[in-house]
């Protein structure tokens, strides 16, 4: 059980999903698992908000969905990044880095 978990800032869920999908198309559960593993369990994405976020991104055209067989041969909805999504990912990464740099600078002030 993770003892301390970081709360997600609003809007960062989108960024995480886009990044996760930038490597390969996945279905919703896989995304959630992946994020948990990679962040060393410090990020527990509330699974309930994952799907509305995925659908929102799909509506905006940054990811697109298709149904296909999963690795255990069951029918699943796979998401992958579109070109617009890739651009959006780049933009959001930039924004995130700017934000964190700014915050760090403020925290270092005497």
């Amino acid at each position: 059980m993770p003892t301390s978990q970081a709360d997600l800032l609003p809007g960062t869920l989108d960024l995480l999903i886009l990044k996760a999908l930038s490597l390969q198309p996945q279905h919703g559960w896989a995304i959630s698992e992946r994020l948990r593993q990679v962040s060393r369990a410090m990020l527990d994405v509330p699974q309930g908000s994952l799907y509305p976020a995925l659908h929102r991104l799909e509506r905006r055209g940054w990811i697109k969905a298709s149904w296909g067989p999963s690795d255990n041969n069951r029918h699943a909805k796979f998401y992958e990044l579109t070109r617009a999504g890739r651009k959006q990912l780049g933009a959001e990464v930039d924004a995130w880095q700017k934000l964190t740099t700014a915050v760090s600078l403020v925290l270092e002030m005497q």
């Binding site: 559960w29 959630s32 698992e33 799907y51 999963s70 255990n72 069951r74 909805k77």
Partner: peptide, 17 residues
């Protein structure tokens, strides 16, 4: 129906794990 299927799939995989 799609949403329902998607969520059921998720539950199955989590339960499997």
């Amino acid at each position: 129906r799609e949403l329902d299927a998607e969520l059921r799939f998720h539950l199955e995989r989590e339960a499997d794990k």
